[in-house]
């Protein structure tokens, strides 16, 4: 599994999607614990129902790789790493949901791929309006411009939801990092402006600063204890939880100690 985690970290922002389907009926809680313990951060799907048509048949592990052209390029048990690494070079616009766009929209698509969503939306909107102003609009240009706008909007909505959920769960570091991505990616757009306001408010909040500092201290402590024995880790985590009682970092430390 460390190999797959490495593959994920290398390509997750470059157009790789992983759907890891646990097929032994493991409960969601147990799967979460397993992922935490093994440091697996790629998406885990429960059950097989969502993937009818992709029957593994002769047991697990079994995998399918879909290429940038939408065709299945590999299936089997082991050996997908090299196939994926090679195929990644063919991804032109990561995350756009389209491998090619109509003429005149390549720049907007490339801007999207660089995570400059606000500019991609503005460029696509400009092209869309120009095209619609013509006596015979090119349907492909209209469709692809609308696709870029819709896709960027979906990214904004997803990131906004992620930031809000993280904030509600007191995962402030994640919330702030996500608001920053929104602010940078949607400059001059409502998503970006709202994120900037939310981020400023979080920075000014003393309670949040306290929580963030405690989480940073926990991370630093965990890094120091990386090679320590489980008993030593447990002792330190419990002491940390006591010292920072009531904060999210203490809850996390408690949970980690219980999992050891």
């Amino acid at each position: 599994m460390p190999q797959l985690e490495r593959l994920w970290n290398e390509f997750k922002d470059k157009g790789l999607h992983i759907f890891h389907v646990e097929s032994q009926g493991t409960s969601e809680d147990d799967l979460k614990k397993f992922c935490r313990a093994k440091g697996m951060t790629f998406p885990q799907v429960m059950g097989q129902g969502s993937f009818s048509g992709y029957e593994g048949g002769s047991g697990i592990p079994y995998a399918f790789v879909i290429g940038a052209d939408g065709k299945v390029i590999w299936q089997g048990r082991e050996g997908y790493h090299a196939v994926i690494t090679e195929e990644m070079a063919k991804v032109r616009f990561p995350g756009l949901g389209k491998g090619s766009v109509a003429k005149g929209l390549e720049k907007a698509a490339a801007t999207f791929a660089q995570k400059n969503y606000g500019k991609a939306m503005a460029d696509a909107q400009k092209k869309l309006e120009a095209e619609k102003g013509k006596s015979s609009a090119d349907a492909a240009v209209v469709a692809d411009a609308e696709h870029i706008i819709a896709r960027a909007t979906a990214v904004g909505e997803r990131l906004q939801k992620k930031a809000e959920n993280a904030k509600a769960e007191r995962e402030y570091a994640i919330a702030m990092a996500t608001y920053k991505i929104l602010e940078d990616g949607f400059k001059g757009q409502p998503f970006g402006d709202n994120a900037a306001t939310a981020l400023d408010a979080m920075k000014a909040d003393k309670e949040i600063s306290k929580e963030v500092k405690a989480l940073q201290q926990l991370d630093a402590m965990l890094a120091q204890l990386e090679k320590a024995a489980a008993d030593e880790k447990k002792k330190n985590l419990k002491a940390f939880a006591e010292k920072f009682k009531g904060l999210k970092a203490a809850e996390k430390a408690d949970q980690m100690a219980a999992n050891l």
């Binding site: 097929s23 992922c35 885990q44 592990p61 994926i84 990644m88 991804v91």
Partner: peptide, 27 residues
């Protein structure tokens, strides 16, 4: 839905990208 965030949840959303679907088990 997924444990650990997925940037796409359907084949349509993954068009032009590379997808790995892997069946596995914890035991």
């Amino acid at each position: 839905s997924t444990i650990n965030e997925a940037q796409a949840l359907s084949l349509d959303e993954c068009r032009g990208d590379v997808v790995l679907i892997k069946y596995w088990g914890v035991n």
